[in-house]
Design a protein around this nucleic acid. Structure first.
Length: 387
DNA sequence: ACCTGGTCCCGGGCTCGGTTTT
DNA sequence: AAAACCGAGCCCGGGACCAGGT
């Protein structure tokens, strides 16, 4: 938990915040520093990275598993530790030619959901290696590459973790080929949910498969998060067990359901998460839907459109056209109707909405469809921050 | 034939970092 | 120094076209 989180937590306290202490601690997309029950997997990843602790580079590896199985949790927790020490513990080994202590490779974690283009990939790697002052635009990709090359040349090599690598544009394969053009000793840890046989080039490298959470571990995850994010004893074991049973090993869905149940309970002004809150919470979370991590990393205007959508009454949601007009009129967004329409269709395309064809027969023309959110809406409303 | 919804694509404007000119 | 300029990536707007219905 960073300082900002701690301060926000204090600010929110008091008033009517009696049940939920901090929504961020229930956020499925925010990972904790010590993931529950994933010790053996951490160990396996570390085993593979072992050469990096001995001044050489590990081979590339693909870490994969179903959604909500803790891939990001493990890799981001691991890399946040590994990234930190720029100066390595001094060893007795010194090269004879140079009076320079043995250096270990740099570790960098990149989220391909944010870095989903060649330019952004380089930019985020550069950000991770330096202190985050890489330009966001205004320079050419080539200039960015040479900048990155010169920075990387100061290290013996780099281990780059690319989370959600299978969501990279234009193709997952491009992650590796882009990093190869840097002509630097780079080892990649690719992370994704697509089986290696279904991604070009990912089947040729080492793999670490992560299974979904067992129900017992998932209950532990829920209880741990619940006890830090909610007031004391607000979450009963039985409620966690129900959520875990429903979530079927998907920690994202489980946490989203807990989050939603907590929102509903708090809006009702109660001190504990009741069984009915869990039922209602589960009801609002689509199983296997689009994860909050995807929704919360969308460009700001798309999130605005989404937020405006959630304000709409049911009758404004009856068709895409009606929804488009309503959102274009909303004070939350400042976009033309044409753009809103395009964004809505694009969001449906990536799975943020379901398109349901209505039975409404207006007579002429192609029958319209309406949009139904396919992501955890209550957590999104709470975590959404206009920017 | 005609109508409306849905898809695809790309030109141009915006904003930024770097470079040249004043 | 400061200002003007330039070229880059990203996003918005919107037109052209296709799909699916009466």
């Amino acid at each position: 938990m960073d300082i900002e989180t701690r301060i926000r937590r204090r600010r929110r306290r008091g008033a009517d915040q009696t049940l939920v202490l901090d929504y961020d601690l229930l956020n499925p997309a925010a990972h904790v520093s010590e993931p529950n029950g994933r010790g053996p997997i951490v160990e396996r990843v570390l085993d593979h990275l072992d050469p990096a602790f001995d001044e050489s580079l590990p081979s590339d590896v693909y870490v994969w598993g179903p959604p909500g199985s803790g891939k990001s949790a493990v890799v981001s927790a691991l890399f946040s530790r590994l990234e930190a020490p720029a100066t390595q513990p001094r060893t007795a080994i010194r090269t004879t030619t140079r009076a320079q202590s043995a250096e270990l490779p740099r570790f960098v974690y990149v989220n391909a959901r944010q870095a989903n283009s060649e330019f952004k990939l380089y930019r985020h790697v550069l950000d991770g290696v330096t202190d985050g002052d890489a330009p966001t635009k205004g320079i050419s990709t080539d200039d960015l590459v040479s900048e990155l090359r010169s920075v990387l040349s100061e290290f013996v090599g780099a281990v780059v973790a690319v989370d959600h690598a299978d969501e990279f544009e234009p193709s997952p394969t491009a992650v590796r080929s882009n990093l190869e053009t840097l002509n630097d000793p780079i080892s990649t840890v690719l992370v994704g949910r697509t089986p290696p046989s279904n991604v070009d080039g990912f089947g040729d490298i080492a793999e670490i498969e992560i299974p979904g959470y067992s129900q017992q571990v998932l209950i532990d995850v829920l209880m741990t998060r619940g006890s830090s994010g909610l007031t004391q004893d607000a979450l009963a074991y039985d409620q966690s067990r129900r959520i875990a049973a429903w979530a079927g090993g998907n920690a994202h869905d489980a946490l989203a359901a807990l989050f939603s149940a907590a929102v509903i309970a708090e809006d009702d002004g109660v001190q504990k998460v009741r069984s009915e809150d869990v039922t209602a919470g589960i009801d609002t979370v689509p199983r296997g839907g689009t994860s909050l991590g995807v929704v919360l990393t969308l460009p700001s205007n798309r999130q605005r459109v989404l937020r405006a959508f959630l304000d709409l009454e049911a009758d404004r949601r009856s068709t895409v056209t009606a929804t488009t007009e309503a959102i274009a009129d909303s004070a939350r967004v400042d976009l033309s109707a044409g753009t809103v329409k395009r964004i809505l269709y694009e969001l449906a395309d990536i799975g943020v909405f379901d398109r349901v064809t209505t039975d409404q027969t207006t007579g002429h023309g192609r029958p319209p469809s309406r949009l139904e959110p396919r992501f955890p809406t209550l957590p999104f409303q709470k975590l959404y921050e206009p920017h």
